[in-house]
Design a protein around this nucleic acid. Structure first.
Length: 243
DNA sequence: AATGGTTCCAACCGCTATGCA
DNA sequence: CTGCATAGCGGTTGGAACCAT
């Protein structure tokens, strides 16, 4: 047997939240903290489902939300992150303190898409609009199954294409490290996963593979979490104002 | 002032991964 | 191990606000 349902859908309110509902939710979370969304509505005296409460809190009521217009700097950062991560709004939001995934998603769809289109850039691919793809060859034929001349040609084309892609990435985001290849983490010292990093003029910083992927403080994080979450993809200092 | 079109964004929906019983 | 609930995510929608005619 599983658990009982999170809420009685027939007896829950829908639509816009009232001021009173907001106040109840804020007061409850202030008193008891976030979490256990299942039991929250009843405990807070709200006729809403837990999912709705969670969304309302995360997207609108949280005290650390920035609100207000996006800066030009934030625009550019969102564009860069989107070119890297695609529609991973929660990951993008994680790099923009005080912004929610929903807010960024809406902002992307209403402002940035248009902005990119006006620049002649396809917002989905971040490539110039109407760029011919005729020079791209994708081959699934095994090397040993190809003739020697064929092989030579394919390798040549793919090599040029990869080079072109790398150059595009550099032009797009010159200040970001775009090498997102997946490989075993760098191993050092006794620990199997903790990496030491030394920067010029700084003390030694250590972080685990989990943190290096931007999963700071997640379950898999086994370091002391001294790396700022904003350091992912080399974005620290450059793009973030202190909170 | 009335009307119709457009923009914006909060909220909902449906799906997946994870965890619990 | 299985089935279900929960949490979280991305896509979509409804309707209020705004703008042009």
């Amino acid at each position: 047997m599983g658990r009982s349902p999170c809420c009685e859908k027939a007896h829950t309110n829908k639509g816009a939240w009232t001021k009173e509902e907001d106040e109840r939710l804020i007061a409850h979370i202030k008193a008891h903290g976030e979490g256990c969304w299942r039991s929250l509505p009843k405990a807070a005296g709200l006729l809403r489902c837990g999912k709705s409460c969670r969304l309302r809190w995360i997207n609108y009521l949280r005290p650390d939300l920035k609100r207000g217009n996006f800066t030009e700097e934030e625009d550019e950062l969102i564009i860069k992150l989107h070119s890297l991560l695609g529609n991973k709004w929660s990951l993008i939001a994680g790099r923009l303190p005080g912004r929610t995934d929903n807010e960024i998603k809406n902002y992307w769809n209403t402002h940035i898409r248009r902005k990119l289109l006006s620049r002649g850039v396809d917002p989905a691919t971040h490539r110039p609009l109407h760029q011919p793809l005729s020079d791209i060859t994708i081959s699934f034929v095994k090397k040993e199954e190809r003739s020697s001349t064929e092989d030579k040609d394919d390798v040549h084309v793919m090599h040029n294409y990869q080079k072109q892609q790398q150059q595009e990435k550099l032009l797009r985001c010159p200040d970001l490290n775009l090498e997102l290849c997946i490989s075993p983490p760098f191993q050092e010292m006794n620990s199997s996963t903790v990496q030491p990093v030394k920067r010029e003029g700084e003390s030694v910083i250590t972080y685990c593979f989990t943190c290096s992927l931007g999963l700071h403080k997640s379950q898999g994080c086994n370091c002391k979490c001294v790396i700022p979450s904003t350091a992912f993809l080399g974005l620290e200092k450059q793009h973030f104002r202190g909170k």
